[in-house]
């Protein structure tokens, strides 16, 4: 679960691994702050989300990840499934981090907007807006990418 989150947020297996490790290390550091009011997994998940949102030099890393995904998507040797997965991840990586987090939490992890809001430390309305804006962009980008792929093949 943590790895899936860090992967979708970072777009890179190596970064995802580093982030997941860091999440566990931070949890260990803050163990005395864990009050048992939430499940340990939710608490750890919250740490990982915040970590992904604050990951140092995020923009540079994201740019690298986008390039890597662009290369993967353009790789003719990849299977159709890989290319479709690559396009989705490429589109996710183009989103601002907070919108991406909203999508990961609500679409992939199935959290209600209210739950995602609690986890992200913002209002439910904000989450709803982020999800709405992110989905509008994703639809546009994916349709455009699909069109480009169709033309190429």
């Amino acid at each position: 679960m943590i790895h899936a989150l860090t992967y979708r947020m970072s777009g890179s297996e190596a970064e995802a691994s580093d982030l997941a490790q860091e999440a566990f290390v931070q949890a260990w550091r803050r163990l005395d702050h864990f009050r048992g009011e939430a499940r340990f997994s939710s608490w750890l998940y919250r740490i990982a989300v915040n970590l992904c949102l604050n990951w140092k030099a995020r923009e540079a890393r994201e740019a690298r990840a986008r390039t890597a995904w662009g290369d993967l998507a353009a790789n003719e040797g990849s299977s159709t499934g890989d290319r479709r997965t690559g396009l989705v991840q490429e589109a996710l990586m183009k989103l601002p981090a907070k919108q991406r987090a909203a999508i990961v939490l609500t679409v992939y992890d199935g959290l209600k907007h209210e739950e995602a809001a609690r986890l992200l430390g913002c209002s439910e309305t904000t989450v709803s807006w982020r999800v709405f804006a992110a989905k509008a962009k994703l639809k546009r980008w994916l349709e455009k990418m699909d069109g480009q792929k169709g033309e190429r093949s």
């Binding site: 899936a4 992967y7 989705v88 992939y108 994703l138």
Partner: peptide
């Protein structure tokens, strides 16, 4: 869109 997003699984380790 949701279906398309969910179809993209993270790589298996």
């Amino acid at each position: 869109l949701d279906q398309r997003l969910r179809s993209a699984s993270p790589p298996e380790r």
